[in-house]
Design a protein around this nucleic acid. Structure first.
Lengths: 244, 244
DNA sequence: CGGAATGTTGATTATATTCAACTGTTGTGG
DNA sequence: CCACAACAGTTGAATATAATCAACATTCCG
């Protein structure tokens, strides 16, 4: 592979920036750096770099070394477990001001997932070394890091819980229900799917064909209405009932 | 519930010990406390307590508060996601000198799983407070804790990877293959199932009926031989081939 | 020994996948 | 700006996979 396009090689197509202000802004907005002193943020940011990826581009490949924690400034990415025949399972969507790769980077293990840009994205690569050092010096940061890892772990367990032993209809209903504004009572409520139906299907562990059929069923039962990527939840209570 | 039998209530049936030597021994053998000074181990151990559980007993219930990290001194436990109708999905088996509950305890979140003793077991309950304090003072411990969380996270991802898009035959073959001694080449190799076939089925996300049929198939293909809980791998290469 | 837990087997069925063909949408370069 | 290619979504028919139900055999423990 002559031309490196992922996060391990410098991709020259875009500026591989060292804009300090920019990097400080990105880093300081991460949950990981909440309440960390500006000086420490600046120190870490000074060793980070910016990268740009076009929609569809591979950010990291499963099994490749992870140069550091990846933080998304804008855009959207998916973390996927590739299966054979182009099939894939989406573990998580990562959006602006979120980061991924903490566990693998800190343990210096190969990246367990493919990361793919779902839209043009800008992200920061924060090398492990300064993170390790900061973790040893700054108790606040160390705690943030622990929280992030622990929350990731509980999140994955919740995910497995949601998938195991529930039918695909239940998973879909649960997902749609979770999209509704928490405040909106049982009333009708329009929601936007954050990604394509195909990507959502992969997230829910079903094929796009099955997803299409299930949505049609829900529509026929007057539980939802559909118009492109915009879905209106008509009967939240009954939807939650199906989700079980 | 009058009589508390889980880790949140003192179960009087057994001695609720404060044997300092015992607790120090248990704690110091945990990966979490590797290279932590004896003084710090003693400090933490002094605030822990010992509990005994009979085979089949519920150690913690899903949704219940977790008083601290649970460390197993001897015996075996399973962490399960209960499904309706007595059905369940096993996330992990936890044996002697292993611990669980770090993430939920540190974040003070309800326990995401049921923990059930698979054999008579002795365990230590290590309250969160001293762990937090030690994490702030002792950099070695903080790092151990991070490692444990990060490894747990990567382990779960590997687990999802192994389950997603692989047939149950492949999962079973992969599991059996993983039981074989790493050193034993392609030679036949007798292995012991660490738990009952039913529990193993729940671990692999299949029913005990399916498990029985799959094992029979493997037997008929001369890939394995069976005698009680003892299984002999006859053709490791071909088994690995099936696991794909 | 007796009873509970564990494991086996067959018949039937639910659930979602696969394959294939087709429609609609979007973004790009001529 | 339009044509066209690539992508996203829909639909139907046939199929695979493992679950469920039910009955029975075996093993383990007290």
């Amino acid at each position: 592979m002559l031309q490196q396009n992922d996060v391990n090689g410098q991709c020259g197509a875009y500026g591989n920036g060292r804009d300090h202000r920019l990097l400080e802004g990105i880093v300081s907005n991460l949950p990981l750096f909440r309440n960390v002193s500006p000086a420490n943020v600046a120190l870490v940011a000074s060793q980070a770099r910016v990268e740009h990826f076009r929609r569809g581009a591979l950010i990291v490949q499963q099994g490749a070394p992870l140069p550091g924690v990846i933080a998304i400034a804008y855009g959207l990415a998916k973390l996927v477990l590739p299966r054979r025949k182009g099939d894939e399972r989406v573990l998580r969507f990562v959006g602006a001001n979120e980061s991924f790769g903490e566990a693998a980077a800190l343990l210096e293990r190969p990246c367990p997932v493919d990361a793919v840009a779902l839209a043009d994205a800008m992200l920061a690569v924060i090398p492990v070394r300064p993170l390790r050092q900061l973790q040893e010096r700054d108790c606040v940061f160390a705690t943030n890091l622990m929280r992030a890892l622990a929350e990731g772990l509980l999140g994955l367990i919740a995910d497995i819980d949601a998938n195991a032993g529930r039918s695909s209809t239940q998973r879909l209903a649960a997902y749609l229900e979770s999209l509704a504004r928490p405040d909106s009572g049982a009333a009708a409520c329009a929601v936007q799917l954050p990604v394509t139906k195909t990507a959502l299907a992969a997230r829910l562990g079903i094929t796009k064909e099955t997803m299409s059929r299930l949505l049609r069923e829900l529509k026929e039962q007057r539980l939802i209405a559909m118009d492109r990527g915009s879905i209106t939840i008509l009967d939240r209570a009954r939807l939650a009932g199906i989700a079980n």
